[in-house]
């Protein structure tokens, strides 16, 4: 299915589209935070969402796994299709959506429990009947954390460093075996070395998962992503191949933003 969008660069995407936003408007108490936005997210790629503070990046991201449901007075118009299914149709259970579309938050937020329990909790509450040990080990391997924590799985997750905690949160999301992982500025609370760890990890993860990352850090978007979305004031300004968006942007505002002239 090809969605017509105001931006022609979308047509150049040849990977399969896993997530599509069609004329999406999201408002808080009547004030639009996302204004008539259409977008197609390709599968097994990293899509970065950039833009100045308050442009609606996080709002958009949180609409993809219905985390906005918890904010009172939020209203969404338009459709968000996940593999062709409308995430906001009345037949869709938001809990089911969040099982398939995982999320990593800005600040590392492990549960105040053991490392093992942090990863095992998701599968265990979702009726996973296989070996939790295996699932935990696999997820920690995927998050490149296993070697650092394998001898202390029963220790509290709060004893880990910030970067380790964030990788634990990624492992926790991976343990659900989601299709898509949403990352909301996952490195903004981390030091450069931890950030590098997480960026390396993202390259590995994209073989299996689709990643959408919101970031304030332009270099990070340029380094890790395959596609870039530039938002301003809730509107999609430009969406395309990352290299093109950063080197030959079509819109003047994009050029001004990525070269650091504002924002």
């Amino acid at each position: 299915m090809i969605i017509e969008t105001p931006n022609s660069s979308v047509g150049k995407l040849n990977a399969q589209e896993i997530l599509q936003a069609i004329n999406v408007t999201i408002s808080y108490s009547g004030n639009p935070a996302i204004d008539n936005l259409s977008l197609s997210v390709p599968e097994h790629q990293i899509t970065a969402v950039i833009g100045p503070s308050g442009c609606g990046k996080s709002t958009l991201l949180r609409s993809f796994n219905r985390m906005n449901d918890f904010i009172p007075d939020v209203e969404l118009k338009g459709r968000i299709l996940y593999m062709g299914e409308d995430l906001y149709s009345s037949e869709i259970d938001p809990v089911e959506v969040r099982r398939r579309i995982g999320m990593v938050f800005q600040k590392p937020n492990p549960f105040p429990k053991s490392i093992f329990q942090n990863v095992a909790w998701g599968p265990s509450i979702n009726g996973y009947t296989g070996s939790l040990e295996e699932r935990v080990e696999k997820s920690l391997h995927q998050a490149v954390l296993w070697d650092e924590v394998k001898d202390r799985l029963q220790d509290s997750a709060l004893e880990l460093s910030g970067g380790q905690q964030q990788r634990l949160c990624i492992a926790r999301a991976l343990a659900m075996e989601p299709e898509i992982i949403l990352m909301d500025e996952p490195c903004s609370a981390l030091d450069p070395i931890s950030t590098a760890h997480i960026e390396d990890l993202m390259f590995e993860l994209k073989l299996r998962y689709t990643i959408i990352i919101v970031t304030h850090n332009m270099q990070q978007a340029a380094r890790v992503s395959d596609f870039t979305v530039f938002l301003e004031n809730g509107r999609l300004v430009e969406f395309g191949n990352t290299q093109e968006v950063f080197t030959r942007p079509k819109e003047k505002r994009t050029e001004e933003y990525v070269t650091g002239r504002f924002g």
Binding site: G102, F105, F111
Partner: peptide
Amino acid sequence: SIRQSAFALG
């Protein structure tokens, strides 16, 4: 954040 991460895990 604890509630959010729990909800985000389905």
